[in-house]
Amino acid sequence: MTGLQYDGHSWIPDADLFVAANGRYGPPARWQGVQFGGTSACLLLGPDITKQVNRPSNPPTARGPGWDIPWRHLNAPPLHFTMDAGPRWVRGHLINGYWGGSGFNWCNLVALTTVANRNHATIETRLNRYLTEFYRFDRRHRGKVAYWYCIQYWVQASRTPWAILATSNNLYSYCPNLIRVTWRIVRVTKPVGQPGWSIRKFKTQFPKLLAAQTTTPNLVQATNAQLQRDFPGFRLPRIHATLRNTPRNRAENQRPAANPLFPTPAGRPAIPPAVSLLDGSAAVFQD
């Protein structure tokens, strides 16, 4: 990044504005009466996120009972996740570390198989392509359009554990059967700086200015007509609604009652219906 640019009328988001402004996590999950991992997260992804320089990856560093040391409660599983000889496990971010998601806070981490984590990364990679196009659009117009295209992004863990029979001595009773990723393309009106504001002042005020537009009910979704006008011919490979895409998982995904989700974080917008063809949702199943 080369620094935020402002010509008195238009801002170009050439700084890490969105990363620092608006991530939110739900409370810790409780499995079999024990607190372990996250429940949900929400983030507004802005067009500057893919253009950060030396951006931190925030790798997972959280440790503790259940992950790398035994639980101490009655009838606890004999194994913790780093000991499991079945699927390989990782501490999967709900919000990507490159997007500012924490690696040390268990509220942003869940135990995921490596296959599930890779499938989640597939979604993140494709959404990065959206953000790259949104950034190019803003730069192409020298920042003089009155809005940014952004992505409102939610991740929710299933309340249903991966275990076939959820019991306190079963390791797989302490992780979700899936995480559901949902995204909506939104347009954010560029805040207007006040006379005499410095770039530092703007960056300080930016989270408040952003929150005024992106909390319920102020979120403004982009329509197909707007997207077709501003991005003629832009297409992305289709993201499957079910990952891992087995017949059993597809059947479960078509019955939401089979995998009720933890609520979205308090204070963030509720998930609205899809408006454009670029809006979507995907269930990432363990494997």
Rank of each mutant, 00 (worst) to 15 (best):
A225S: 15
N22W: 14
L278T: 15
P256C: 02
Q194G: 08
H93I: 00
P269Y: 03
T160P: 12
G196R: 02
R129V: 08
G3A: 03
E252F: 13
T214P: 09
K201Q: 11
L79V: 13
K203L: 13
L261G: 11
L17K: 00
W183H: 12
P70I: 08
W67G: 08
L236G: 05
A85S: 09
T82V: 12
G26L: 03
L112H: 07
G97Q: 00
Q194Y: 10
N108R: 00
W67Q: 11
G66D: 07
V220R: 15
P59S: 06
G23R: 04
L243T: 12
T39E: 07
Q226A: 12
I151S: 00
T264G: 11
R118M: 12
A266H: 13
T215F: 00
I95M: 07
P176F: 01
N169R: 09
T264A: 14
G33V: 05
L278Q: 09
F234A: 08
P78V: 13
A146R: 14
P272F: 10
F262N: 12
A212K: 10
Q5F: 10
D16Y: 12
Y172K: 11
Q52V: 09
R118N: 13
A41Q: 01
P217C: 05
S198Q: 05
I123R: 06
N108A: 01
K208P: 02
P28E: 15
P232L: 04
G33H: 02
H141V: 09
N119I: 12
N259H: 15
T204D: 11
L45E: 04
T246C: 02
L94R: 07
F104N: 14
Y174C: 12
A283C: 12
Q213M: 06
A21M: 01
P13R: 03
R255S: 15
R140M: 10
